[in-house]
Simulated assay, not measured.
Amino acid sequence: MKNIQGKVVIITGASSGIGEATAYKLAEQGAKLVLGARREEKLKVIANNILAKGGEAVYRVTDVVKAEDNTALVALAKSTFGKVDAIFLNAGLMPNSPFSALETDNWNAMVDVNIKGVLNGIAAVLPTFEAQKSGHIICTSSVAGLKVYPGGGVYCGTKWAVKAIMEALRMESAQAGTHIRTATIYPAAVQSELVAGISNEATSSAYRQLYDTYEIPAERVANVVAFALAQPDDTTISEFTIGPTTQPW
């Protein structure tokens, strides 16, 4: 797409699922990719696949919970490609369970990655976007950020927080005249490794059945990210809800 060619795009959570699919999709359309995730081997494979097809991609092992890792990812984009045009804050965890299971370590992990990780990404890139008076911040929430499900209270809470954060960011950017665009994506059952991270046996079984029944490929969300990025610079489409046609979420 015309408005994607040559753009420098940072992707967190880039080693699998939606992040990986988006990296390939944007590379095909001429974007220059800066990939961040915790698993170096997977990042290396994805970057090499993009390079082998004539695309441009670099990567850095990144834990979004660490503010300095986010800052370093932005610095890598600038040192390699000279600029940053967009960031896709896609890293997330979904180790769901009923509150009564008291999986407090998982509660804290979801807050750290799903909320603090997003805030760290925004903090890392916002000064650059404000200075250049342009930029695009895209974030993965979930349909769990629009409605609440039993067994997913903490996860839902983190994804509702993402909705609020991104909406306030959109409004503040508009008020400040910084021309920063935002987009929040609310996927339903889309292929990812989220279900694999559920340790609670009963919850895992229910979610695995749900995803086995309805799941659509991660590329479907990658298409939405590309669509958002391709819009004219004066246009923000701030929210996208996407899921299987057959899933009554």
Rank of each mutant, 00 (worst) to 15 (best):
T140S: 14
T128R: 01
V74K: 00
A230Y: 10
A23E: 02
Q5W: 06
L102S: 15
I180S: 04
I10W: 02
P98H: 10
S100K: 15
V84R: 01
L229R: 05
S192F: 07
Q209Y: 04
A101K: 10
L119G: 05
T62M: 06
I185E: 07
E172A: 10
A72Y: 00
T80Y: 03
A123E: 12
V84L: 11
F129D: 04
T203R: 08
P150T: 13
L51I: 14
D85N: 13
F129P: 01
I237E: 05
A75Q: 15
M171A: 14
G13A: 08
C156H: 04
T104N: 06
A57V: 02
L210Q: 07
V61F: 03
G19F: 01
E41S: 13
T245E: 10
A52F: 00
A206N: 09
G92F: 14
N48Y: 06
P95S: 13
A206E: 13
R38W: 10
V154K: 00
V45Q: 14
S173H: 07
N96T: 15
A47N: 03
G30M: 10
A31Q: 02
W249E: 11
V143W: 03
K163M: 09
K159I: 09
E68R: 06
Y211T: 04
N90V: 11
I10E: 00
S141V: 08
H136F: 14
S204D: 09
A174T: 12
N108C: 14
E215S: 10
G177R: 00
V113T: 15
D233T: 12
Q132I: 01
A131Y: 02
A47P: 00
I185W: 04
V113A: 12
Q29F: 07
G151K: 05
K163Q: 13
R170L: 13
L89A: 14
I46C: 04
V125C: 11
A226I: 09
C156I: 08
L194D: 07
L102T: 14
D69Y: 01
Y155N: 08
I11T: 05
A161R: 02
L119S: 09
Y214F: 07
E56D: 12
S142Q: 10
F227Y: 11
I4Y: 05
L119W: 13
V9E: 03
Y59W: 11
G157L: 07
S141P: 06
D105H: 10
W160N: 07
L102Q: 15
L102N: 12
N223H: 09
E20R: 14
